[in-house]
Each structure stands twice: as C-alpha cells, then as structure tokens.
Amino acid sequence: MPRFALLALLLLGPAVCVPATQLVGQPAPDFALRSWDGANMRLSEHSGEVVLINFWATWCGPCRQEMPLLDEIYGKYRRAGLVLFSVNLDEETNLDAAREMAKTLRVSYPVLFDARKEVSRAYQASTMPLTVLIDREGVVRYISEGYKSGYETRYTEKLRELLNE
C-alpha cells in the first residue's frame, strides 16, 4: 500500500468508519426534521418518553420488510409511551417515492425527511435500516444495524425493558 494511502487511512479511517453502536450509553443527538405532513418534529420534545428511531431509504429492501413490523410494534406500544420516528434518507428529488412507499406500506407513525443527511450523520447511519432505541432520559440504549427476520423480537424485548423502567 502506498505510504500516502496508508497515512490517509490512519488519519481518516476512524472518523469515517465509526460504528453507530458506539452511541450506546451516550445522550441521543437532538434533531428537528420536517414530517411528510409538513410539521416539524424535534426529538427533545419527547423527553420522558421511550423513542424508537428507524433510518431507512426507498432503495433498501430490508427496510421495506421491516417497516410494517415496526408499525405493529408502534400500534401495540404507543399508548404505553412509545414514540416512533421514521427517518427517510432519500435525496430531495426522491421524496415523492418515499411518501408513496410509506403510504403503500400503511405506516401510521411519523415519517421524517433527512435529505441533507445531517441527522443520519449524527447517528452514524451507514447501514440501512438502522434502528435506535432511546430511553426516557434521552440516552441511546440499543442500536440495530440492518434487518433480518426476527430482529423485531429483539426490539420488542428491549422496548419492554425501557417502558418498564
């Protein structure tokens, strides 16, 4: 490997390749994003509630599988204090497709748009989907990168723990 490439990797690698799981135990980065109905939603307005944030994109097949399952979880636990934010990472030119996908999948939770990728960078969302659980104190307690059948069981277990604290 040329020396310059090795130096660049050593200097830039850790800053670029920090896994999202390093946020566990840290205060959740606050954000405000516009939802598809035009309302601005701010994470810090939900202090004292358990929050699940799901980062997704229209090009992500596992995201399409996971979203209806998250909607079931949301329907079951929202009265117990669950807040769910769905953060779409598509480009601004593709927001209509994102709206259509969420509508087709009949999600009932808020869909927020992060076309500038500021929130996804704060949460180090390099894998899609990325699911983040935040406790009532605003601390990131669990992160799941990607999705495979059965992951929703883990979300439910972690969610129950947080709702019972």
Rank of each mutant, 00 (worst) to 15 (best):
P2Q: 11
R3F: 14
R3H: 09
F4N: 13
F4T: 12
L7D: 14
L9K: 02
L12M: 14
G13C: 11
C17S: 15
A20I: 03
A20Y: 00
V24G: 07
G25M: 06
P29D: 08
P29T: 07
A32M: 09
L33G: 06
R34L: 11
G38E: 02
M41Y: 15
R42A: 10
S44R: 12
H46V: 00
S47D: 13
V51A: 03
I53Y: 04
W56M: 05
W56V: 00
C63M: 11
R64H: 13
E66Q: 14
M67T: 04
G75I: 06
R79V: 02
R79F: 10
A80S: 15
L84Y: 12
L84V: 15
L84N: 06
D90E: 13
T93F: 09
N94G: 00
D96W: 08
R99Y: 13
E100S: 15
E100V: 07
T104W: 12
V107M: 13
P110C: 11
L112D: 01
A115C: 00
A115Q: 07
A115P: 07
K117V: 04
E118Y: 04
S120V: 06
R121A: 14
A122M: 03
Y123N: 01
A125H: 07
A125G: 09
T127K: 08
M128K: 06
P129V: 04
T131N: 10
E137D: 11
E137S: 14
V140Q: 05
R141A: 06
S144P: 00
S144C: 08
S144H: 11
G146Q: 13
Y151W: 05
E152D: 11
E152W: 09
R154N: 08
Y155W: 15
K158S: 09
R160C: 03
E161C: 00
L163A: 08
